[in-house]
Amino acid sequence: MFVQDLPPEEQVESAAARVRPLLLEKEVVFYGTVFKAIGFFLRGDGHAGRGEHFERLRAAWRAIDPRGTGLHAYNMQVAPLQDGQPEAAASSVADNQLAFAWLYGDVVHHDLERLAATGIAGVRERYRAAAPLVCRVMIHTVSTLRFVELLASNGLLPVPRAALDAGVVVTDPLMRQHARVFVADPDVDPPRLPVPGQAPGAGWTLLLPPTGPRTADQVPDVPGPTAPTGSSD
């Protein structure tokens, strides 16, 4: 028995959404545009290793063909059976077609042409082909980033430091924000909005004024996991 243990589909969908712009010619991060720019700055660079790595990496990207009908790893054949024998010639579809049909037919668009061309397989087989493809594109993306970082560190590529340091993922989805909320009378013209950093003027009323020893400038800490979730304010 041949067994494939693939990641959950929603994880691959998320990854595909991240790397998909590198495959689209209209996007500024399209791999072809990126390598054209890298090639420009590497003109005259006599380092053989950098040149060879550049060509290998670009060739790996070019092998990712969203419209390709050739296979990467396998070809799928399906034929209807009658009494255990094929009734007709088998229909054939390559894994590359299945993979991009999943991406553009099942996930980000509803490409009827791609879905019709892979209809013999169904979404399960399309996903089976897509998961390795998305992983391959992820590997190429990370490899390209590392190459860009290497060139930038050697002064061969003018990449702003901020572009390499900018955050691109949310690591903590629990949003915490200490604030005081002010409301105004909805039946009259809204009062002037306060200047950032200054207290609201006339027409604004503090919602749920603090009680007890607290002052208006004190905000309670976020409750711990075992503390009550209510508030005395």
Rank of each mutant, 00 (worst) to 15 (best):
F2K: 14
P7K: 11
P7G: 03
P8L: 15
Q11L: 06
S14C: 07
A17F: 00
P21W: 02
P21T: 03
L22A: 12
L22M: 14
L23C: 03
L24F: 07
E25D: 11
E25M: 10
F30H: 15
F30Q: 05
G32Q: 13
V34R: 06
A37I: 13
I38P: 01
R43E: 14
G44D: 04
G44P: 04
D45H: 04
G46H: 08
H47A: 13
A48K: 12
R50A: 14
R50W: 13
G51C: 06
E52G: 12
E52D: 14
H53D: 10
A59P: 02
A60Q: 13
A60K: 13
A60G: 15
A60E: 14
I64T: 02
L71W: 02
L71Y: 00
Y74N: 07
M76Q: 11
P80D: 12
D83Q: 09
D83S: 10
Q85W: 07
Q85L: 14
Q85H: 13
P86G: 11
E87C: 03
A90W: 03
S92M: 03
S92E: 09
S92G: 06
V93H: 00
A94W: 00
D95P: 01
D95E: 04
N96A: 12
L98H: 00
A99S: 11
F100W: 12
F100A: 00
W102S: 00
H110D: 10
D111L: 11
E113G: 11
A116E: 12
I120A: 07
I120H: 01
V123C: 06
R124M: 09
R128D: 05
R128V: 04
A130I: 03
A130V: 02
A131I: 01
P132K: 08
V134G: 01
M138R: 03
I139C: 08
I139R: 15
S143Q: 12
S143E: 15
F147N: 11
V148A: 15
E149D: 03
L151S: 11
A152W: 06
S153Q: 12
N154F: 12
N154P: 03
A162R: 13
A162N: 09
A163Y: 04
A163M: 05
A163T: 05
L164M: 15
D165V: 08
D165H: 07
D165K: 12
V170G: 07
P173K: 03
Q177F: 15
H178V: 07
H178I: 06
A179L: 15
A179S: 14
R180L: 11
R180I: 06
R180T: 06
V183G: 07
A184P: 08
V188I: 13
P190R: 14
L193K: 08
Q198I: 05
A199D: 12
P200W: 03
T205C: 03
T205A: 08
L207Q: 04
R214C: 10
T215K: 14
A216R: 08
P220F: 04
V222M: 11
V222Q: 11
P223K: 04
G224A: 14
A227D: 15
A227N: 13
P228D: 09
G230M: 00
S231E: 11
S232E: 09
S232N: 04
S232P: 01
D233E: 10
D233C: 05
